[in-house]
């Protein structure tokens, strides 16, 4: 099928299938799924600036639907989500501006591709190590007797972050956080927002781990709150990138047709799995995306 806006010829079945798989992961893991959607678009020969913008656009609808699902389940910390929204938009715009800058030098494909690969490998390794360590710890007899799950293996890190006292201090009752600096929340939001604007998608692959490990938000609330932020960054990023000519909305609509259905199924699956297991299942997924980008860069699809 021809997509006149980007001038590409791509199978709509392939796009809908990528969307469906990404939708399941998105609804289930609380991330936008750009670690697969972006590379999945890149291997079709779509230029990287269109990959970033179109990826952001396709997740708008499903992230809004999925965040509503999590909202009624009580998995969204609204106070945290609204504080983060401002930082998410600042970061997303900064990322989109960097793409514009790289476009001038025709370096978007190689720079974004290499950064994407590095980020995906790091996230995968970290998530695997942490969730495995947490599951091992949760088998400790005392915890089993009490029926509790062990805290994340890097729990000391979020304690350090929460001890950082820079006014204003915020109380996040929904997340069970008594006192945390507003600036720490803002930094997390800006960093994740930047990657959303720079690499596409909602950057949930970074925001979700940061919410859990850096801020100490419980996994289920992190999933719901992250999806809310994905909706914010995707909406803002879509507008910003579309103005810059980086969005093929017809490709986004085909992908979203599959993704919207996948997201509904993904959210249902969260009822059956607990925190560390969700994180362990998540860990190898970014590597699939990294492999697709390596393939795209090596085979020269980016030259189309």
């Amino acid at each position: 099928m021809d997509f006149p806006i980007s001038g590409q010829h791509i199978s709509p079945i392939y796009l809908a299938a990528v969307g469906f798989i990404v939708g399941i992961f998105g609804g289930f893991f609380g991330v936008g799924g750009s670690f697969l959607a972006g590379p999945g678009l890149f291997v079709t020969g779509l230029p990287m600036n269109f990959v970033v913008g179109t990826d952001l656009a396709h997740i708008v609808g499903k992230s809004l639907v999925a965040s509503r699902e999590h909202l009624v389940r009580g998995n969204v910390d609204m106070k945290l989500a609204l504080i983060m929204a401002g930082g998410t938009m600042i970061g997303t715009e900064a990322g989109a501006q960097v793409i514009q800058y790289l476009k001038q030098f025709k370096m978007v494909n190689i720079v974004v591709g290499v950064v994407f690969i590095g980020v995906l490998i790091l996230i995968s390794a970290f998530m695997a190590w942490e969730s495995w360590a947490t599951i091992k710890r949760s088998h400790v007899a005392e915890l089993r007797l009490k029926g509790k799950t062990a805290p994340p293996a890097v729990s000391r890190f979020h304690e350090k972050i929460q001890r950082f006292r820079l006014w204003p201090m915020i109380d996040l009752a929904e997340s069970g956080i008594k006192n945390i600096s507003f600036w720490m929340i803002l930094i997390v939001a800006v960093v994740a927002g930047f990657l959303a604007g720079f690499l596409g998608g909602g950057a949930g692959y970074l925001r979700m781990p940061l919410l859990v490990y850096a801020l100490g938000v419980p996994t289920k609330v992190a999933v719901g709150t992250d999806l809310f932020e994905v909706a914010v960054s995707a909406s803002y990023g879509t507008l910003s990138h579309a103005i810059k000519g980086n969005v093929d909305i017809l490709i986004a609509l085909v992908m979203h047709t599959g993704a919207a259905v996948g997201a509904q199924i993904g959210v249902k699956l969260t009822d059956f799995f607990r925190g560390p297991k969700i994180r362990l299942a998540f860990s190898p997924l970014p590597l699939i995306g990294a492999a697709l980008i390596v393939y795209g860069l090596l085979t020269g699809h980016q030259m189309k």
């Binding site: 656009a57 708008v60 609808g61 909406s235 910003s240 017809l250």
Partner: peptide
């Protein structure tokens, strides 16, 4: 949409957002 993309990116951006948000939210 193709003409809009070529002629007025701001309107295109708003329409693009509305189309994809509508596909998700309104249809649900």
């Amino acid at each position: 949409l193709k003409n809009l993309f070529d002629q007025n990116k701001l309107i295109y951006a708003l329409v693009a957002w509305a189309l994809v948000a509508g596909q998700g939210v309104v249809l649900e």
